[in-house]
Amino acid sequence: MSKVVSIINLKGGVGKTTITVALAEFLVIKHHLKVLVIDLDPQTNSTVSLIGEEEWEKKNKASETLYHLFKDHIDDTCQFELENSVVKNCSNLSGGLTNLHLIPSSLDFVGIQDRLINIGQTALIRPIDVLKNAVQSYIQNYDIVLIDCPPNLGLVTQNGLNISDHYIIPTIPDHLSTYGIPQIISSVKSFNRKTGTHVTPLGIIASMYRSSVTRHNSTLRKLTSQAAAGELPRIFDTRIPLASKAADATHYEADSVNTLKQKYGWAGSNIYDAFTNLTEEFLRHVELPRTKSTQTTC
Score class of each variant (00 low, 15 high):
S2H: 12
V4M: 07
V5L: 11
V5N: 10
S6G: 08
I7Q: 06
T20V: 14
T20N: 09
A22Y: 08
A22Q: 13
L23M: 10
E25M: 14
I29T: 07
K30F: 02
H32G: 13
H32K: 15
D39V: 12
L40W: 14
D41W: 13
P42W: 12
N45K: 07
N45H: 09
S46G: 11
S46D: 03
G52P: 06
E54T: 13
E54F: 12
E55N: 10
E57G: 00
E57F: 02
N60H: 04
L66E: 01
L66A: 02
K71Q: 04
D76I: 00
C78H: 14
C78P: 00
Q79A: 12
F80K: 07
N84M: 03
V86N: 03
K88Y: 10
N92S: 06
G95K: 05
G95N: 09
G95D: 07
G96D: 07
T98P: 00
N99T: 06
P104E: 08
P104S: 07
S106N: 02
I112F: 09
I112C: 05
D114Y: 10
I119T: 06
G120E: 15
L124H: 08
P127G: 04
V130M: 03
A134L: 06
V135C: 02
I139S: 07
Q140M: 10
Q140P: 01
I147Y: 05
D148A: 11
D148P: 09
C149S: 11
C149G: 05
P150G: 10
N152T: 03
L153W: 11
G154C: 11
V156C: 04
T157C: 11
N159W: 05
L161S: 01
N162V: 07
N162Q: 08
I163C: 00
D165E: 09
H166D: 07
I168E: 04
I169H: 01
P173A: 04
H175S: 04
L176E: 04
Y179P: 00
G180E: 01
G180V: 00
I181Q: 10
S186C: 08
V188D: 13
K189L: 14
N192Y: 04
R193K: 15
T197P: 00
L202T: 01
S207E: 03
S207H: 02
Y209T: 10
V213S: 11
T214C: 02
N217W: 03
S218A: 08
L220H: 04
R221A: 14
Q226L: 15
A227M: 07
A229I: 04
L232C: 02
L232D: 08
P233W: 01
P233N: 13
I235V: 14
I235R: 06
D237I: 11
R239M: 07
A246T: 09
T250F: 03
H251N: 03
S256T: 08
N258D: 14
T259G: 06
T259W: 03
T259K: 03
K261R: 13
Q262Y: 09
Q262W: 05
Y264I: 01
W266R: 14
S269W: 07
N270R: 13
I271W: 10
D273K: 11
A274C: 11
F275M: 01
T276P: 00
T279R: 13
F282I: 04
F282P: 05
H285C: 04
E287R: 14
L288M: 13
R290W: 15
K292S: 09
Q295H: 10
T297Y: 08
C298E: 14
C298R: 11
